[in-house]
């Protein structure tokens, strides 16, 4: 492990039309670190996450993940298709709505990118996929269609699919928000295991208890700014800023049971 952080963001800005969603964001995530992005909806946390793998291309600032960095600005060119794709292939992302490929089986979902993006041999890709499906507890569902799975199972397949590209970091965009309450636990458990294995993770979540237990650091955002940032327990248990206190007060009483 080197001293340099795995993810480094400096001076990041993004506007959608007249609306400025990210205003000068600076953030570092150490290798193996788990950072939770918290904040009310519209605070910019999902946009920030989508900037991390350039699904949203920032207007200004710079992003470095591992050894690849991009700098953005008015005078600078929009990154080209190929480098962009290569960069994204090393960042895994898990979406709120799973976004599994419905015309493929579970196994085909997982082997798709290793074969067609990395050029892995089919047999190797299948071996890799089966071991990952086993890891998320779904090896027996390999030949089923996504539509036959529960939400929690779908999300675990989505995690396996992202892991199949052996990413350097994993990004979770409200991965449990679309799930029935009784299915949240199995997905959080999978994420917790991943964190314990040393994966660098950035998590947008509303599961405060989970953020407190699993994340090393918490970043609290509001209106496109980072309002407060610090060790997870410290920020969640004794927030310093008024906005953070307000936001967390909605959760403490009714924290999600786990």
């Amino acid at each position: 492990m080197t001293g340099a952080p795995m993810i480094e963001i400096t001076g990041l800005r993004k506007s959608f039309g007249p609306l400025e969603v990210l205003k000068d964001i600076n953030l570092q995530v150490p290798t193996g670190g788990v950072v939770a992005l918290l904040g009310p909806s519209g605070s910019g946390k999902s946009t920030l996450l989508r900037c991390l793998n350039l699904l949203v291309v920032p207007d200004d600032g710079s992003i470095r993940v591992g050894n690849t960095s991009f700098t953005f600005g008015k005078s600078l060119q929009h990154p080209k298709v190929k480098p962009l794709a290569a960069f994204r292939s090393r960042t895994g992302m898990v979406f709120q709505n799973f976004n599994l490929f419905p015309h493929m089986t579970v196994l085909e979902n997982v082997i798709e990118a290793p074969i067609y993006v990395k050029g892995m041999r089919r047999k190797d890709a299948v071996d890799l996929a089966m071991s990952l499906l086993d890891k998320v507890g779904l090896a027996d569902r390999a030949n089923q269609r996504p539509e036959t799975l529960s939400g929690g199972q779908k999300q675990r397949v989505a995690i396996a699919r992202a892991l199949a590209m052996t990413p350097e970091v994993m990004l979770f965009d409200e991965a449990t928000s679309a799930l029935d309450p009784e299915l949240v636990g199995e997905v959080l458990q999978t994420m917790q295991k991943l964190a314990a294995d040393g994966m660098t993770m950035v998590i947008v979540t509303h599961e405060i208890t989970f953020a407190r237990d699993v994340a090393d650091r918490v970043v609290f955002m509001r209106d496109g700014y980072v309002v407060e940032e610090g060790p997870a327990r410290e920020v969640i248990d004794s927030p310093k800023m008024e906005a953070t206190k307000n936001f967390l007060s909605h959760f403490h009483k009714g924290a999600t049971p786990r």
């Binding site: 994204r88 979406f95 699919r161």
Partner: peptide, 18 residues
């Protein structure tokens, strides 16, 4: 087709053509 499909493909490192 749900734009999430395009996002998921892009996030896996696929070029738009692929």
């Amino acid at each position: 087709i749900d734009p999430g499909q395009k996002d998921a493909a892009a996030a896996l490192g696929m070029t738009p053509a692929l």
